[in-house]
Write a protein that binds this DNA or RNA. Structure first.
Lengths: 177, 177
DNA sequence: TAGACTAGAGAACGCGCATTCTCCACGCCA
DNA sequence: TGGCGTGGAGAATGCGCGTTCTCTAGTCTA
């Protein structure tokens, strides 16, 4: 098995397990079992669990934003499409809220790399929304709606939080946008 | 030491430690040390850590909502006062986001009592907002803003998320309320 | 005062898990 | 063919922590 293939398998397994069960609840041995990569190789690739966690978050950030970006692009950059995308996400089986918010909750004092990955993710999402909505304030308001809808959908299990937020966004965009 | 005094001290210590550092990061021995209640008494009062966690959450729910309710009451029930209250909260030293959202993130599969405490807290906050804002949809939109502002203030450390959300709420209330 | 009960301090137990170590099988080169 | 290095499987280590156990000092009662 080539090093890059091992890395891929590890990150794939890490994402599935960490997102579904939480980082702390998943042992390195579970990652080994789920990835099929030996423990030795695992530690050669990621010297400590924190390194794997940080890599998991950074990869998830890239993929999550790419998915959102591409979806919104097919809608001609309509900011409301963001909320349609959220609705789809909330409805996926296994949806458990924002991985970054969950990780923030899990680690009282996160390792610096992990804290940075979380903050940078939110910064990038904010930047994306600002690119979609010229007015900074309005963009930030939509961001708040996005985060709120995600948290509530996770806790209540109701994907309709997305349309509630969508209606609010529509009003905000019409008033200020 | 009377049993109720022991319970009070334990819950006080639990809240300070669990909220500040996260539940998993705080051992029962730290609760003992911080409360001054012996381990034996601790386990007589709360047979397992989960019971203490659930009691901590339920007590925090009561106090948090009472504080919000009383503040909004002094403002004549103005829904926008909610966001002023949030701004104060976000500015408090030691603010670390919503205890319930953090706990949700901490426990992949929470014990039933803990999951219920989290859900019930959100249900009650939603009910409070609906009492303030007759229109259900608008109330739910404000709820989304509240949750989003809280998450973002926690992660970015910027209390100004409260005023961003407040402006959005103002627009939503003017349009629909 | 002697006996019995209480509560606290802290040791002990058991387990889970991050990390490291040991041993073995397999492929490569002279 | 015979050493030799590479990689995997999985045991061993060390530690943190939830929970329980032990021992002891103090207090109340007859």
């Amino acid at each position: 098995m080539t090093p890059t293939e091992a890395t891929d398998r590890l990150l794939e397994a890490a994402e599935e397990l960490f997102y579904a069960h939480g980082v702390q609840a998943v042992g390195m041995d579970a990652v080994r079992a789920h990835s099929g990569v030996s423990l030795k190789r695992l530690y050669q690739t990621f010297p400590a669990k924190n390194d794997l966690v940080e890599a998991y978050l950074r990869r998830r950030d890239e993929r999550w934003r790419r998915s959102l970006r591409e979806f919104v692009h097919t809608r001609g950059g309509d900011p409301l499409a963001v909320f349609d995308w959220l609705g789809n996400w909330f409805s996926e089986p296994g949806f458990r809220g924002c991985a970054f918010v969950n990780s923030f909750g899990e680690f009282g004092e996160p390792a610096p790399g992990i804290a940075a990955a979380i903050r940078e993710h939110k910064d990038r999402v904010r930047a994306f929304l600002r690119g979609l909505v010229p007015d900074k304030t309005t963009a930030d308001q939509l961001f708040s709606l996005v985060e709120g809808a995600t948290v509530l959908a996770a806790i209540t299990g109701d994907p309709a939080e997305a349309s509630t937020a969508r209606e609010a966004a529509k009003v905000l965009l019409a008033t200020q946008g």
